[in-house]
Every structure is written in structure tokens, then in C-alpha cells.
Computed example of a mutant assay.
Amino acid sequence: MDGAQANREDALSAIVVLLRDDMEAVNRLIVRHMDSPVALIPQLAAHIVAAGGKRLRPLLTLAAARLCGYPAGGERHVALATCVEFIHTATLLHDDVVDESALRRGRASANALFGNKPSVLVGDFLFARAFELMVGDGSLEVLRILSAASATIAEGEVLQLMTQNDTSTTEAQYLEVIHGKTAALFAAATRVGAVLQERPAAEEEALDTYGRTLGVAFQLVDDALDYAADEAVLGKTVGDDFREGKITLPVLLAFERGDEAERGFWRRTLEERDQTDEDLAEAQRLIARHGTLAETFARARDYGRQAKEALGGFPDSAEKRAMIGLVDYCIERAR
């Protein structure tokens, strides 16, 4: 492990260690609320939960609540962090069906093992459990924030379907997609931390900005890694976005900067879905030629800077330092 990788892992470890007791409580609650007398539900839900992931979104809820002074040993932030994770997991189940994905975090996806219909229905079950947890919290503001985020995620996914295979997609449309499908839940996850402690509106807005800009940075990095990362590190098949015809920033920039022959390549492979075994390598060559991965990472770092600046009004604390470190981890992961 090189020094940069060690620093990234240290940044993740810092927040995991800081919130270990809270996260253990979240994991227990996840298991409890996945239970059902219908045996396939906990079996399939347990498969995707056991696949791992960093639990970034529930970590953000816990960290934001603690940053705002929510007491250790409380229960509301644990329940809401669990709610956030259920919303995220439900969207993963649905996304893998829509994208016909065979891998999720390096393992066979739930739809590959159990089929599309069970995956969609168990995703619905997890959404329902999330709403039970929201209602159980008793705060109408919490319910408003998380339910609005759930609707926005769905809108983002539908918008992505509308722009898929369309090389005329603009950067503004692309950013609208990732603000919806990714950043909205990051923003809601952090904002509810301030709501729990009834903090001033300015702090709510600051945490919303932190989560939203971190979410955009996270997705920009994801979209770049699909053309650059090692498959074992990425946890899914490299080139999935290309094979599915998704229009992401590295492609948008390469299309804009390419000559007519290069644009013809993108139209054939993404719009017409006419791809050969050699086309992914050619796509990577064109992206490298125009430097669009480096620019995508640079844009991610700019959003990361905005996320850090959003925390400027909060006093120094272990939680604030951990949340700042998490920004660096999300941007520099797998590089």
C-alpha cells in the first residue's frame, strides 16, 4: 500500500472508528427490519447488505448528527441512518435490474442470483421499511426531507433513462441526473442531522450543501473510474457504463472535443449500441487522448472543496475533521 492509499484508508478508518458504536447499532437495526416471514425477503436483502460497501450514507447521518451535538447513546440518529441505508439499498436493487448488471461490489448481483422480479419487489419492501422508520421518528420535517429525496432519486433515474444512448445530452442534463440519483440522498442524509438537534436553518443548509456537493463529487469519480479503474477495486465490471450507453462526463467531453470520425464512433457505440470487443479499448483511448478523465477528477475535487467549505461555520471537532477526511477519501478512492 503506497502512502497516498494509506492516507485515504486512514481518512475512512477515522470516521468508522469514531462512529463504531453507532454503526453497530445501525447494523443491528438493519438486520431486525429486514426480517419477514416471507423467507425470500430477508435472504435476498441480506445478500446485498452482506456485499459490503462503505455504508457512506448512514455514516454521514451519524456524523452530521454528532457534529450538531446529538448525544452519544441516542436512538433517533441510528434509526434515520438505517432508513437512509434502506433507501440506498432499495435503489441499488432497482438499478441493477434496470441496468441488467451482473455484479454488485464484486459479487453476483441480487438480480443475477434471484431474478428481476424478486429484486424489484424486495427493493419495494426496503423502501416501505424506510418509510416505517421515518414515520416512527415522529418528525414531519424529517419525513419531508427523506421522502422528497426518495422522489428525487426516482426522477434522477428516469432522467438517466431518457438521456441514455443520446450523445446530444448536455452537461447541464448530466449534472441534473447525478444531482437527482446520487447527490439528493447524500444531502438528505446530512441535513437530517441538523434537524434532529433543531439547529438553525443556516446549519441545515450548510449540511445540505456538504452532502450535495460530496454526492456530486462521488458520482463524478464513479463515472471516471468506469473507464479507468481495476475491476477488482471498482467492484463492478469496468466499462459497464459504456456497454449500457450511459452518457457520463468523460464521454461528453470526449464527444465535444473529438473530430467527426470520433463522434461517429460514439454515435455508433452508444446510440446505436453497435459494439465490438475492441470498442471499449478505443473508447478509453479517445478519453485519454482528450484528457477527459483528468478533467472529471478535477471537477470532482472542486466539488469536494465546496463540501469542505460548507463545514466552515462549525467549530473544530473530531466529527468535523472526520467529515472533511471523508471528502478526500471519496474523491481519491481507487486511484
Rank of each mutant, 00 (worst) to 15 (best):
D240M: 14
D241Y: 03
D241F: 08
F242A: 05
F242K: 04
R243L: 13
R243P: 12
R243A: 15
R243H: 15
E244H: 11
E244L: 11
G245T: 02
G245N: 06
G245Y: 01
K246H: 08
K246D: 07
K246R: 10
I247N: 12
I247M: 15
T248L: 05
T248D: 05
T248W: 00
L249Y: 07
L249I: 05
P250K: 03
V251S: 00
L253N: 08
L253W: 14
L253A: 09
L253F: 12
E256P: 02
R257V: 05
R257L: 08
G258R: 00
G258Q: 02
G258F: 00
G258H: 00
A261L: 13
A261T: 14
E262C: 02
R263Q: 08
R263I: 06
G264T: 05
G264N: 06
F265I: 05
W266E: 01
W266A: 02
W266H: 04
T269M: 06
T269A: 14
T269K: 01
T269P: 01
L270R: 02
E271D: 13
E271L: 09
E271P: 06
E272S: 14
E272L: 13
E272M: 13
R273I: 11
R273L: 13
D274Y: 12
D274G: 11
D274M: 12
T276G: 15
D277L: 14
D277F: 11
E278D: 15
E278S: 14
E278W: 11
E278N: 13
D279E: 12
A281H: 06
A283H: 00
A283I: 02
R285T: 02
R285C: 00
L286Y: 04
I287N: 05
I287E: 12
I287R: 01
I287V: 11
I287C: 05
A288M: 09
R289T: 02
R289K: 15
R289N: 05
H290S: 11
H290C: 12
G291A: 09
G291N: 08
T292G: 01
T292Q: 07
L293G: 01
L293A: 02
A294G: 08
A298V: 08
A298M: 08
R299V: 05
A300D: 10
A300N: 08
R301V: 13
D302Y: 13
D302I: 14
